[in-house]
Amino acid sequence: MKYTDLTGIKPKKKCCRSKPRCKRCPLVLHKVHKAELTGVRGKALEKVFKRARKS
């Protein structure tokens, strides 16, 4: 998934807490959005996305 796609995803209403977390999980998208606000871009943002899904 490209980092440009990560910014436009709408989160689900409730987290299912499965492992790995789904791509639309509110927690995952919150962590990606937070990283984006701190200035993370490109491949580094994709790494944040992958790491957030593992947690």
Rank of each mutant, 00 (worst) to 15 (best):
T4M: 06
F49V: 05
P20H: 04
F49H: 12
A52W: 05
A35S: 13
R41D: 00
V48T: 12
K43C: 03
K14D: 05
K43E: 12
C22G: 14
P26L: 07
T4D: 13
L27C: 07
L37V: 10
L6S: 05
K12Y: 02
K19D: 07
K14A: 12
K31S: 02
E46T: 14
A44Q: 12
C16P: 04
K54I: 11
R17M: 08
K47S: 14
V48Q: 09
R51P: 02
G42S: 09
C15W: 01
V32W: 02
T38D: 04
K13V: 13
T7A: 15
P20F: 07
V40L: 06
E36D: 10
S55F: 05
A44N: 14
A44P: 01
T38W: 08
E36P: 01
V32Y: 03
S55M: 12
L45C: 09
C16R: 04
C15N: 09
K23G: 03
K23Y: 01
C16V: 13
C22D: 15
T7S: 14
K43R: 13
R21I: 01
G39T: 08
R24G: 02
S18P: 00
R24Q: 03
K10Q: 09
V48S: 04
P26T: 09
K34V: 05
P26F: 08
G39W: 08
L6G: 07
K19S: 06
V28W: 03
H33G: 03
